[in-house]
């Protein structure tokens, strides 16, 4: 198992509620939610940096919407 470090995180009530809700809905710990968020953010950022776009497609209508990352 890879060694891990501990950090203190300051979140607002709203952020904490979202973290709790995601943790329950995704069936993973709050730490796992944050680690997953970091992975996804890094992956998306790396692809956007290479000039790619992040698009969401509605499965039913096939309508596409681009998520703008600044």
């Amino acid at each position: 198992m890879t060694a891990k470090r501990t950090m203190t995180l300051n979140l607002t009530d709203a952020e904490m509620r979202v973290l709790d809700e995601l943790s329950a809905r995704k069936d993973i710990t709050k730490t796992a939610v944050l680690r997953q968020a970091l992975r996804l953010y890094q992956t998306i950022d790396a692809r956007v940096e290479k000039g790619e776009k992040l698009l969401f497609e509605n499965d039913a209508t096939k309508e596409k919407a681009e998520l703008m990352l600044l």
Binding site: I28, R39, T43
Partner: peptide, 15 residues
Amino acid sequence: DLTKMGREANQRGKP
């Protein structure tokens, strides 16, 4: 790949 979600009925949407 650690970015994917489950599809099976009991774990749909879970990492």
